[in-house]
Design a protein around this nucleic acid. Sequence first.
DNA 1: CTTCTTACA
DNA 2: TGTAAGGA
Length: 78
Amino acid sequence: MKIGEFSHRSGISVRMLRYYEQEGLLQPNRRESGYRDYGEAEEQLVRRIRMLSTAGLKLDTIKQLLPCVLSDRPDFRL
DNA sequence: CTTCTTACA
DNA sequence: TGTAAGGA
């Protein structure tokens, strides 16, 4: 789906969606048109990013601990 | 009209 | 984070 619909369903502004990508938190595929293409992967990932963000964590911090929160089951094998 | 990027408030 | 500009 395009960024507009994804923004609506995720509740995150288009601005922030592009910013998240800029920060390396999201890597949506690009279409030949150059448009970002969002799917299931981004769907779940954004939910976790949103939770951590709501928890008061800075984007920078979220970026760092994303690897241990990527799975649906917390991965504490650090 | 929607999206893209860069840049400014 | 929002909005403006210029182009596709």
